[in-house]
Design a protein around this nucleic acid. Structure first.
Length: 413
DNA sequence: TCAGCTGACACATTTGAACTGA
DNA sequence: ATCAGTTCAAATGTGTCAGCTG
């Protein structure tokens, strides 16, 4: 099973720099089907530096579900940032992405259930440095960190649900803490990254039935992770577009002029009662999605990129190996298909609750194989479940929606 | 010396509980 | 008893800045 599929995945994984093995491995166990899979289209290399070259116009599908397409909802905002060179703050406690990835999806089976996942992968093997005017490579990248995947809180939900409104990943948090216990996506500072969105057909995260999978990336969403903004133009853009940074806008109380004045008053003596009215006017900011509750955002059709048609790929509905099987025996999916646990035909699929599970802190952590691509065959008996079951911060026996999947904070094999 | 990181800070927004009235 | 709307406080998300670290 899945051998043909694996070939296709290898093809994708063989693309330099934007390596995909961590999820390919993960998804290769998900994808099912004794069907022929056309080799996924090779990915072009991303621009070596940000803000210097125009981004390709549309998403690029890494894998696909037949007829499924994804479009970036806030593409204009992303392009605006990308033109300058997007920077994302990472902190020990975790920082949200702004802009957030917000996509609309079409072509799903309204009745079937899907999971939405997001991960972030290094774009290249370089560390970057801000040279006053632009980002330039500065040495080799740090060793690859444990890879984590964010699971959209609505997962799993029906195709109708996902297609009803744009899907926002505004809750995703980035951290530079390698020991992060919250399941945030772990990144190195001063490195260039590319978010990817994965759509998996499955009745539930731990379902016995996983169908096809499609992965998308939007070149304009690449960014450099930083602990403090380097490019002042990015700072300005963030302040202008992010409502949480409203206080730093020109007429805000926390704008530079006001801060300077406060400092002067502080030096002179006790701060007098402020008499100046502030913040009443709503500074016209750019489009924003990161702070809207849930994922119900008004979508501006003019901002949406043209839907990218996914290359049809075999995805037999509910015929493949299960997610639960992967969670219990991930090694079995890593090149050792014979170790797949037997499928239990009586395993009940959870009914559609209609409500997403509460935001939880489960996550999937995937260890890249040697050399960053491919995984070794697993020895029999490789265990995964205990990591979840014992995982201190995880309230659920299995990773719940709205959190992250963690497949091992230590090498699994 | 310096680039990069950390934590405290002030402010804005979001969220959810408590309350009110129909 | 139920529901919708309002209010308010706590929680959370921002960028800035001073100080620390290697």
């Amino acid at each position: 099973m899945g051998s043909v599929l694996c070939c296709g995945l290898v093809e994708v994984s063989s693309v330099p720099y934007l390596d995909t093995p961590k999820l390919d491995c993960f998804l290769s166990g998900i994808e099912a089907g004794p069907r022929t899979l056309a080799a996924a289209p090779p990915l072009p290399l991303l621009p070596p530096t940000l803000g210097t070259e125009p981004a390709p116009p549309a998403a690029e599908a890494l894998h696909s579900l037949p007829g499924v397409s994804l479009s970036l909802e806030n593409q204009e905002l992303w392009k605006e940032f990308n033109a300058v060179g997007t920077e994302m703050i990472i902190t020990k406690a975790g920082r949200r992405m702004f802009p957030a990835c917000r996509v609309s999806v079409t072509g799903l089976d309204p009745e079937a259930r899907y999971l939405f996942l997001l991960d972030v992968v290094p774009v290249d093997g370089a560390r970057y440095r801000w040279q006053g005017r632009r980002w330039e490579p500065s040495g080799k990248a740090e060793p690859r960190l444990p890879d984590r995947v964010y699971i959209h809180p609505d997962s799993p939900a029906t195709g109708a649900h996902w297609m009803r409104q744009p899907v926002s990943f505004h809750r995703v948090k980035l951290t530079n803490s390698t020991l992060d216990p919250h399941g945030h996506l772990i990144l190195h500072s001063m490195h260039k990254y590319q978010p990817r969105i994965h759509l998996v057909r499955a009745a539930q995260l731990c379902s016995q039935h996983w169908g096809g999978v499609a992965s998308f990336r939007f070149p304009e969403t690449t960014f450099i992770s930083v602990t403090a903004y380097q490019n002042p133009r990015i700072t300005q853009l963030k302040i202008a577009a992010n409502p949480f940074a409203k206080g730093f806008r020109e007429n805000g109380r926390n704008c530079k002029r006001e801060r300077d004045a406060r400092v002067k008053r502080k030096l002179r003596g006790p701060e007098p009662v402020a008499t100046e009215a502030y913040g009443s006017g709503d500074t016209p900011g750019g489009p924003c999605d990161s702070t809207l509750g849930g994922d119900v955002h008004e979508s501006d059709p003019e901002q949406s990129s043209a839907p990218q048609e996914a290359v049809p790929a075999p995805a037999p509905p509910c015929g493949g190996p299960s997610a639960e099987a992967y969670l219990l025996h991930p090694a079995a999916f890593h090149g050792a298909p014979n170790h797949l646990p037997t499928r239990n035909p009586t395993f009940p699929e959870a009914p559609d609750s209609g409500r997403p599970a509460p935001y939880s802190a489960a996550f999937l952590e995937l260890q890249p194989g040697p050399g960053g691509s491919g995984y070794p065959a697993a020895p029999p008996g490789a265990s995964f479940a205990p990591h979840f079951l014992q995982g201190g911060p995880f309230p659920l026996p299995y990773p719940g929606p709205g959190g992250y999947l963690d497949v091992g904070s230590k090498p699994m094999y």
